[in-house]
Design a protein around this nucleic acid. Structure first.
Lengths: 108, 108
DNA sequence: TCCGTTGCTACAATTATCGTAGCGATACGC
DNA sequence: GCGTATCGCTACGATAATTGTAGCAACGGA
């Protein structure tokens, strides 16, 4: 990967139209993105606590996702360490809350 | 990939806990999953129309996602051809509708 | 100083996705 | 029948993303 730093280097990813909803669906469609937001829905977590919460996912991807989510303004790194949702990120997370009930109803 | 047919063959994917919400977040976190549901939100689309709607995404992945989404009960293949959302899939899609407004508000 | 934890990175191996091409089946007009 | 067009779907090599393991520098207690 093009080791994005600062500016968003998009290689083959979707959302070539630039429409906000497409960019958002593309970002959230990356692996662990939704899961990270979900796990941060409560209190902030340290990078390692987050990794534990995410089934010991590879730190490489977690860091990549955290960087992307931070650039998107959904996640922030607190002063005393630990990742948490921004106000914007919390609003986004609220959008997904109905998913919980849906999921329970879904798997019979 | 293990060419899943009938039963769900999960290789390295997340959601090892089996909790419905995790399975759902995992499924929706695959590439083009969210986008497919989004594009099918209106009328049913043929596989090729769907491909066009999804920025000419590779048919390989689209078919894989469609199979998964069908097994999940969100998408169905109509009698006269064309993919559409099931009742369940439509409910799921409704959950994402607030995302549209959020996305517009998001990108300044 | 020695531990322990923080956020974060390197690197090779494994998967997933891409892009192009093409299949069998079906439905048309001729 | 014959060609043509579409349908859903698949093969396959090339490329990009993800995994798993190991480890870094920085900071804080003991």
């Amino acid at each position: 990967m093009a080791k994005q730093a600062g500016t968003t280097t998009r290689s083959v990813r979707g959302s070539r139209t630039g429409r906000p909803i497409m960019v958002l669906l593309d970002l959230l469609g990356r692996r662990w993105s939704l899961r990270i937001l979900w796990e941060l829905r409560g209190e902030p977590l340290t990078s390692r606590a987050l990794r534990t919460a995410c089934d010991e996912a590879s730190p490489t991807v977690l860091q990549a996702r955290l960087t992307e989510l931070r650039e998107a303004g959904f996640v922030e790194l607190g002063d005393g360490g630990g990742y948490g949702l921004t106000t914007l990120g919390r609003e986004l997370c609220e959008t997904f809350m109905p998913l919980h009930r849906f999921a329970e109803r879904w798997k019979r």
